[in-house]
């Protein structure tokens, strides 16, 4: 009980801190929504002030922020200054896109990294281990937008196998959705293979020294089963932590990759909001990202307990 109470308290503090900072920082940028809306048409200073007053931008920041927060608590995130669309709708349009991209990227990374981590741990120090290390680090050292352009060049331009930029919602076409997100997911996922597999490898090497692994071998179990059933789970807590961080940050938008592939996700939304000085949209998106982060963090804590019954036990006796 106290565990949940603490988590929720933590969530609220993070939310307020992050959204306030975002609100303050974007106002430091030159220009404001009024100049974006009316400035292009050569409006006078009085006209701009009128727009500001209409939008409530002439109040001091704390007043603006508290007003926004009061509405936000009632799930009213306001409307974009420019498009006049509900920020809530913007989020519900964009979040699923980023979520899908995150999911595909994580699946790709884990499908490669977990077997690789397990196997390089088992074969630690061999030529296979070193080769795998070299290849995965090559992908890691490549910035993901460079990898993105490379993949576009190869798959879209040269071989014409996949579209360079063609996001289709899952509801329109499953195949089209997968096709459109495959290259961006690869750009995001391949670099992380090195991080995941090396992390798992290190924990796995430590686990393979444990008595209970020798015991499993002494039972005559095939090495495959010793590795996957006895050693993988106790070795995966470190990996889980990093996956959690990545999931959170990718739902919040893979800003660069979404830009490269023009995927209408949260990341592209954030860029648009900053460029248009659309304070209210930015605050809404940032609040969403912060909530996602904290929730993912919380799920990771829950998953620890699923993976390791000792955590479950300790938590139960502490409560």
């Amino acid at each position: 009980m106290s565990y949940f109470a603490r988590k929720i308290g933590f969530l609220l503090i993070v939310l307020v801190a992050v959204t306030f900072l975002a609100a303050a920082l974007i106002r430091l940028l030159p220009g404001d929504p009024a100049t974006v809306i009316a400035g292009a048409s050569g409006a006078t200073e009085e006209e701009l002030d009128q727009v500001r007053a209409d939008l409530g931008l002439d109040d001091p920041l704390p007043v603006q922020y508290v007003g926004w927060l009061g509405d936000a608590v009632q799930l009213d995130l306001g409307r974009s200054y420019i498009s006049k669309l509900e920020v809530r709708d913007t989020i519900s349009d964009r979040a699923p896109v980023s979520f899908q991209l995150m999911l595909y990227a994580q699946i790709i990374t884990l499908l490669i990294a977990v077997p690789l981590g397990v196997f390089t741990a088992y074969k630690a120090g061999t030529r296979f281990d070193r080769t795998a290390n070299g290849i995965t680090f090559a992908f890691l050292s490549l910035p993901n937008f460079v990898l993105g352009f490379l993949l576009i060049y190869l798959f879209a331009v040269k071989w014409n196998l996949l579209p360079a930029s063609d996001y289709q919602p899952l509801s329109d076409s499953i195949g089209g959705n997968l096709k459109g997100l495959l290259l961006p997911a690869l750009s995001l996922g391949l670099g992380q293979v090195a991080v995941y597999s090396r992390l798992l490898r290190v924990d796995m090497i430590a686990t393979l020294q444990e008595d209970y692994v020798t015991m499993a071998k002494a039972k005559g179990l095939p090495i495959r089963r010793v590795l996957w059933r006895h050693a993988l789970r106790p070795s995966s807590l470190g990996l889980l932590t990093v996956v959690g961080v990545n999931v959170g940050s990718l739902i919040g938008g893979a800003v660069v990759v979404e830009q490269v592939f023009q995927i209408p996700g949260v990341g592209l939304g954030l860029i648009g909001a900053i460029q248009a000085r659309d304070y209210i949209v930015l605050q809404g998106l940032v609040a969403f990202v912060a909530i996602v982060y904290v929730l993912v963090n919380f799920s990771v804590d829950v998953l620890y307990a699923v993976l390791d019954p000792r955590v479950r036990h300790a938590r139960a006796s502490a409560a």
Partner: peptide
């Protein structure tokens, strides 16, 4: 192993898989 020859280890705190 396990079938014909079985082994008991020194420390049961570490020889059983915790998960």
């Amino acid at each position: 192993r396990g079938r014909e020859i079985a082994m008991i280890f020194q420390d049961p705190m570490t020889s059983l898989n915790p998960v």
